[in-house]
C-alpha cells in the first residue's frame, strides 16, 4: 500500500499531464500541478528546518566533534529566520506609512538586508570565486595530451583561452582582413558556435531521450527504486 498509492498517483498524474499537453482545454492543468508542487515544497521547508534543528541540536547536546560549527549554523539560521519573519528594522512602505510592517522584508536598512548585503553576498561571491582556483589546479592536474583526441582538445583550449583575452587579439592583429577569420577572437566564436555547439546538441539529444525513457519507466512503474524497490 505504501508503494502502490504513490505509484498510482505518479502514473495517473503523469499520463493526464501528457494528454493535457495536446488538449488546449487542459493546458492549464500542468500549471496547476506545478502550483501544487510549490505548495508541497513550501510545507517541506518546515520539514527541512525541523531536520536541521534536530541534527545540529543532537550534535551540540552530545558534544560530538565539530559541535561548535553546529552552534554557528543554528545561530545563523535562527537570526536570519527571525530577522525576515519579524521584518526587524524595516521601515514602513511609503504607500502605507501607518503600518509598521508594510515595508518589504529586504528593504535597505533592515536587519535581513544587512545580513544579505554584508554576509550572504560576500560569502556567495567568495565560494563562486573559488572556482578560479579549482579550475587552475584541475587544469594542471588533468589536462594531458595523452592521445590525439586529448591533444586536439588541448589545442582548442589554448585557442579559446587566448581568444577570450586581449593577448589573443594582439597576437593575431597583424592578419589581413581576408584572413580575419583566423584571428583568435573570431576562431573562438567559430569553435564555440560550430564544433562545440554540434557536440553539445548531440549530448542534449541523448539526454532528452534518456529523460523520455526514464519518465516512461516511472509512469509505467517499471522503475520503482526511487520509492525504494520492493
Amino acid at each position: 500500500m505504501k508503494r502502490t498509492v504513490p505509484l498510482i498517483i505518479c502514473s495517473l498524474t503523469g499520463f493526464i499531464l501528457i494528454i493535457s499537453w495536446f488538449l488546449p482545454a487542459a493546458e492549464s492543468w500542468g500549471e496547476k500541478v506545478t502550483h501544487w508542487f510549490d505548495i508541497v515544497a513550501a510545507f517541506a521547508f518546515v520539514l527541512g528546518g525541523a531536520n536541521l534543528l534536530k541534527i545540529h541540536l543532537q550534535k551540540i547536546s552530545n558534544r560530538r566533534i565539530g559541535w561548535g560549527y553546529s552552534a554557528v549554523t543554528l545561530t545563523a539560521f535562527l537570526v536570519t529566520l527571525l530577522a525576515g519573519l519579524f521584518k526587524i528594522n524595516v521601515n514602513p512602505s511609503m504607500n502605507y506609512p501607518a503600518y509598521s510592517w508594510s515595508g518589504n522584508y529586504l528593504d535597505e536598512g533592515g536587519l535581513l538586508w544587512w545580513i544579505y548585503e554584508y554576509l550572504f553576498v560576500p560569502l556567495s561571491a567568495t565560494l563562486f570565486a573559488m572556482l578560479a582556483f579549482y579550475i587552475t589546479s584541475a587544469a594542471f592536474r588533468a589536462f594531458r595530451a595523452k592521445n590525439i583526441e586529448a591533444s586536439i582538445l588541448l589545442f582548442t583550449a589554448f585557442l579559446i583561452l587566448l581568444g577570450r583575452t586581449y593577448a589573443g587579439s594582439l597576437i593575431t592583429s597583424g592578419l589581413p582582413d581576408s584572413l580575419a577569420f583566423l584571428r583568435f577572437e573570431n576562431l573562438t566564436i567559430i569553435i564555440m558556435s560550430v564544433f562545440n555547439l554540434a557536440g553539445s546538441r548531440a549530448i542534449t539529444i541523448g539526454i532528452a531521450l534518456g529523460v523520455v525513457t526514464t519518465s516512461l519507466k516511472l509512469l509505467l512503474a517499471v522503475d520503482r527504486s526511487y520509492l525504494g524497490s520492493d
Binding site: A132, A139, R141, F143, K146, L154, A157, T165, A167
Partner: peptide, 23 residues
Amino acid sequence: RMAPQLVAHLLLIFLIILGNVLH
C-alpha cells in the same frame, strides 16, 4: 577585470604546458 583575466588565462596556459612537459 580583463587584465586579471588575461594574466589568469596565461597562467592557466603555462600550467597546462608545464603539466604536459612533466607528463
